[in-house]
Structures are given as C-alpha cells and as structure tokens.
Amino acid sequence: MTTATPAAGRTAAPARKPATMAQALNRALHDALAADDSVHVLGEDIGTLGGVFRITDGLAAEFGDSRCTDTPLAEAGILGTAVGMAMYGLRPVVEMQFDAFAYPSFEQLVSHVAKMRNRTRGAMPLPITIRIPYGGGIGGVEHHSDSSEAYYAHTPGLHVVTPATVEDAYGLLRAAIASDDPVVFLEPKRLYWSKSDWSPETPAKVEPIGRAVVRRTGRSATLITYGPSLPVCLEAAEAAKEEGWDLGVVDLRSLVPFDEETVAAAVRGTGRAVVVHESSGFGGMGAEIAARITERCFHHLEAPVLRVAGFDIPYPPPMLERHHLPGVDRILDAVGRLQWEEG
C-alpha cells in the first residue's frame, strides 16, 4: 500500500483565476487519483454525470470507470463494499449524494468503519474517506439539508473534518484521503460555489487534520465555528465593529480530533466565547465545545459560553430555512448577552 503524497510544487505559473470550492475538491480528488493507484472513488452518479454537484467531473473519463465508479443506488452497499476494498489494501473515497441520504450507511459506518482498527488490534485499519455534502442554505427540499456532524463526531474511531475555505477544501481532502484512519469529510454545500483566488495551478498544500485556525484575531470575544457558518461569523465580526466589539473567529476545520489548545488559547485572550453552528443545538458540537471551554478556561471567562445554533426542529422547508439558520443578527444578539459591563 502506498500513501498518497501531494503533488507539491506544480511548475505552471499561478494563473490566479478565482476557483470555487467545488473545483478545489475536484482537483484534490484528481490529484489523489493521480498520485496513488490504490485510491478509488465510488458513489452514485459520479461517473458519466460527474456527481450531482459535479465534484467528480471528468474523473471517470481520465482515470476510467474502475477508479471512479457509478455504483448501484444503495448507500450501505457503497460503504460496505468500500470496507471490503479497504480490507484488501485499497484506499476508497466514497461520495454520499446528500447528508440525509447517507443514513442507510450508518450501521456500516458505526459498526465496521469506525471499529475495524480497534477490533482487530490494529491489524486491519480502514483508510476510507466518506465525502458528504451537508447543511442547508441552498433551498433544498426535505432531506437535502441536514447537518449530521454530531452523529459522526460522537462515534469513536472516526475523524470528522469540514472545510470552510476553497484552500482548505483542497488541503483537507488530500489529507483525509492520505489518512490511515477513516475520515467523514463534510462538505458545506452552500459553500461549493464560494470563490477565492486559489487556483488549481497554485502549489498544492495539504492541511494537517486536527488543527483549528484563527481566521480573525479579536480582543472582545471569540466566535468558534466551522464549515458553512464561517462566512456568517466573519460577516458578524465585521458588523460588530459598529457596536464597538472586536471579535475573533476560530475555524475548527476538524471536529475530531478537536483542537482544544487553539480554542482555549483564543478564548483565554478574550474571556468571552460564542459557539456558532447551523445544526440543532441540543446534544450538538456546541455543547461539547462549550463544556470543554468551561473546563479549560473557567478562570478566564467573563461570561457563560453561549451557543448560536439551528433550532431543535426537523430541518425546515426551503421557504422557511432562513429563520432556522444562524445569521449575523442572531450571532450579534448572543455577543450582546455576554455580560458586558455597563459604561
């Protein structure tokens, strides 16, 4: 078995043409397939069509049907056969078409993917990457907008990663595929068309899994977020300047492993923290993060750690989803409740 290594230092001059997250993910898959013969991509409609979000566009044409395979329409079967492929030494990358369509594969994920290394005392690791477009904000009808990260993060044996930028989409997906542990790779589908001046010609950079990054430093309070909520938090931080608040923003990037040090350091610097995510709050990532901040930073805190999350309701129909998704105002409201001293 060979380990994927990034095709570092592309020689072509940087074109600096804006690229989307979708293109960065496509490039990451392309480069992983080119770098390592054991990498195989499989999923529904990912061959001829290139995936419903076109993330696998052109891969079947370039690498052949056996490296980028249209499977029968059955998610447990896709992940279950990926387990067998990984048992034999291949490095499968699975695409689940939508968040809520991944649930049939939950038993394979929890009972086998997450546990195989452990139950075989390390003899049978499963280097599988499970790509799942997740979250709302694209006007999807029922079952197309779930945020399922807490289910996965609660399962020992899985890494759970979610990029929020075009650059990270490339770097984290390459790292996920190269990882010898199974990685649930959550792609914020409303950021698929977000752009940056990253381009496929930019020297490739693999981001380590498990490290959060401070996207914005601030002195008043710290917003802790990930994936689809990062742009909302950055917008809120910008708007907060009018209120006289200087907000920092931490992008977790990896929910498991969870980078406590970066989060704790940022919160100690401000004494106030708000965790922001669009999945439901009850029993969610925010609860875990708030508890850990309290355990680690209690004497630095000026106010209870607050959460801004989606409501504890089934994901709403598209015409009502804007009321559910945490927006700038709801984040600023929470910041306002961080027990600021009068005057």
Partner: peptide
C-alpha cells in the same frame, strides 16, 4: 456480505 463483495472487487 458487502465487505466480501468489496474485497472480491478489490482483488
């Protein structure tokens, strides 16, 4: 059973 199928395919 799907593991067996996947392994056979990989082989």
């Amino acid at each position: 059973l799907p593991h067996a199928v996947g392994l056979a395919r990989a082989a």
